[in-house]
Amino acid sequence: MADEETSVICVRSLKTQFGDQVIHDGLDLDVVQGEVIGVVGGSGTGKSVLLRTIVGLNPPKDGRILLFGKDLAGLDREERSRMEGRWGVLFQDGALFSSLTVAQNIAVPLKEHSDLSPQLINELVALKISMVGLPTEAAGKYPSELSGGMRKRAGLARALALDPEIVFLDEPTAGLDPIGAAAFDELIASLQRNLGLTVFMVTHDLDSLWAICDRIAVLAEKRVLIVGTMETMQQQDHPWIHEYFHGPRARAAQRPS
């Protein structure tokens, strides 16, 4: 188990709350460098909220979140902006800027956070577009002209624009057909291998969990109930975890390994 020193994401006794509704209470989680961690949990257990809290979009009520050993709350504007270049986020539907083309979307972080020449930025944008498996014609299109799968790929390209060390993915395969979802899993796995990324993935997709996650964190009862590999998950006797990993869909997703 990782400790505060070696983990890239370290969450300690986190509490988040909206009005009177407590979402997380005493939540601990560690993510180590270079792993793919899948976060699962029932609807409304605050998986996406956890992701948003870690990247600083939701102020926590209590507790500490360390990214690369630093507490975001204690950083000034400039340090924080530099830190933000070290992770990328893929939102559920890509969250591309609708008034910009795909190429312009990917160029936004590059223009904002680097001093590269326009020529070099264009080349890097073309590189990222090709790396996430989008056809070159997609570069000049607007998000509304793309299919859901292509929007996610474009969102991933934008998240990867600055070569981040951590990528946060919010339900990357939701709404994709099985072939598209498998291809997306494969894409994430290959990028993770080649770029040495740490991947924090919120998902419901059991196939994704089997295919690419090194460890799985189960969110229930307002905290992380357990973290472990798929094999560990299957041996749990907590009713929800058992149901999740032994239900009919889980059996269908399990492949002989």
Binding site: M131, G140, N194, L195
Partner: peptide
């Protein structure tokens, strides 16, 4: 090896700009 992989990855994705 890691650097080689990355260079290969980049080379494989070198497509002409529109």
């Amino acid at each position: 090896p890691t650097i080689k992989t990355l260079l290969d990855l980049v080379a494989a994705n070198d497509l002409p700009l529109e």
